[in-house]
Design a protein around this nucleic acid. Sequence first.
DNA 1: AACGTTACCGAAAACGTTTGCAAAGAATAT
DNA 2: ATATTCTTTGCAAACGTTTTCGGTAACGTT
Lengths: 345, 345
Amino acid sequence: MYLLIFILEMKGEQYTLKDLAKALNLSVSTVSRALRNHPDVNEATKKKVQQFAEEVEFQKNPIASGLRKHKTNAIGVIVPEIANYFFSQVIDGIQTIAYQAGYNVLICVSDESLEKEQAITKHLVNSRVDGLLVALSVETNHYEHFDFVNRKNVPLILIDRVTDQVPASTITTNNYEASFEAVEYLIHQGHRQIAHIAGPKGQTITRQRLQGYLDALKKHAIDIQEQLIESGGYTQEGGEACAKSFWTLGEKPEAIFAVNDRAAIGAMRFFKSVGVAIPDQMSIIGFNNNPMGEIIEPNLSTIVQPQFEMGASAAQLVLEQINQEEYTHQHLTLPSKLAIRKSTL
Amino acid sequence: MYLLIFILEMKGEQYTLKDLAKALNLSVSTVSRALRNHPDVNEATKKKVQQFAEEVEFQKNPIASGLRKHKTNAIGVIVPEIANYFFSQVIDGIQTIAYQAGYNVLICVSDESLEKEQAITKHLVNSRVDGLLVALSVETNHYEHFDFVNRKNVPLILIDRVTDQVPASTITTNNYEASFEAVEYLIHQGHRQIAHIAGPKGQTITRQRLQGYLDALKKHAIDIQEQLIESGGYTQEGGEACAKSFWTLGEKPEAIFAVNDRAAIGAMRFFKSVGVAIPDQMSIIGFNNNPMGEIIEPNLSTIVQPQFEMGASAAQLVLEQINQEEYTHQHLTLPSKLAIRKSTL
DNA sequence: AACGTTACCGAAAACGTTTGCAAAGAATAT
DNA sequence: ATATTCTTTGCAAACGTTTTCGGTAACGTT
């Protein structure tokens, strides 16, 4: 037995159940059961096995186990980009929960490309992930690749960048209400000419945040002006362009609600470059609580979302679904809230 | 055969080699070989098999394959934090290369904690990753957990946050030279009282960047003043505290070289808060090219590092080592360069 | 006609678990 | 005393590949 240990340690290899069984004079099956605390095995032998396994630092081979149990103990994650504060926080949340539960996380980046998203989705399913978490790319406008996921019976959760076009659970924040609140805040501050830098067309987020904007105006009987709504993508450049365009208008806006902080920051940069004072001449509210908002001057008012919790909830949910034979799709909405800083008056 | 297809599709299951073999009236081994383009199999049958596999979208089970080949086709990555521009870029680079090579990436976060780093290291090795990429946590001051990695013969690459205390390949940037260049730049601009916000004690990065600072001063015959060197961690708060401390000095610095952008930004915020003009009264240079540097005003001069390439090179290297029986540790140093913006005069 | 090569293929044994089933022994009930 | 159950264990068959070791057929060489 100790010779065995010695040899294996020298080879840098792992013990197997067989090794333990041989050393303990038991069968492989009892050792296996003992280690998993199966009720069928005697307490005394259980203790003996577990103790010995501990002692020699036995680690069962998850590959073999996975093969037999048809599970990999891994969940796949697809995000549009990773060098992005929002998504990296989400990933952090996913990672934390998954790690605690003994699951590994396979992270992939779609790079905002539908084609890559499709390829990666297939790849992950073929890698036999036990569950899949996805934030859709901007390009994604059809969804057959997720049919594939469903056909293979792997639980799918959409995070933040969601759609109702695919049967799946979703984790989002209350985009509509938060937007409504932000715009209403601007109205309460006395603004009437309020513009909106919208997100990419077709996105659920874009639609919901726009709707919040529209309904807030409507509630306060403010006319909706088409030229005050412009789509700028999710980027700083987009925000900059929208701001520029707004500034050519005859009746210029006094306030802007942007679909996210990057766009808001782009707008701020434009206004600064042309000498428009923020917040005196122009109030701006973003969305996301990007740390850049606390660096830029004046500090950006924004809507703070619980990114980490979104990831954590998504992970939690997918783990539940993995362990259930049957489950129904859930749609969680987490609260986000307005944080007024210095870019609004 | 088509009944088979039908049944499997209905069950949402995967084909196996056995299924293909049966359908094609061949043995499992030939099918396996055909799919892997083994020379031992006739071109005609090879074509037939491959075509059929394509047709029914056969995907071999990587778990089974992994079990047999003692490989998982996965590499582990440990970073101190993920919601961090530098590391998320590195991860992006790793991810890109690994994905191309058909490898999965398991990302874990040590949260700057030695304890977590140890636990994760063990976990990943026990998950049988084929290789491991690590950026050390700040707390890491002993390294036994990596002996474990080496004993199990899994290739280990240290990225950026490295040490010479563990036998492993490393990927870094030319910290010393870049720091030297930055400080020399400040000297050329006429500054003599140059302070350094250093990194956490014990870190290789801290040591190298400090040495660059020291040697630049030495070269230009400028006395080194202990009170102009202070360790501030890698954080904004740390930078802020150091700046504050420098500002209490009788002979105040005219310029600061900071170990990274976060610290530099912290310093800038302090100086702004007390009305010290940047760059007129105080020049500042950071390190990392954090996008915040282009948001803060004045825009931060910094040293730009090829983060993505660092990740990519690390991935490339570990893949090479995975596929070699014997390999020697390599130490790659990638170039980084000074980017002068508006925070220096 | 006997032998050696070569090209192709299959049987079967791995890889290290998990699990259904049987079996043996102990304990309880009849 | 036998019959029944319960507890504890082991056997062996999976899981889906890869790979070793032959084996067969066809061909060319003596």
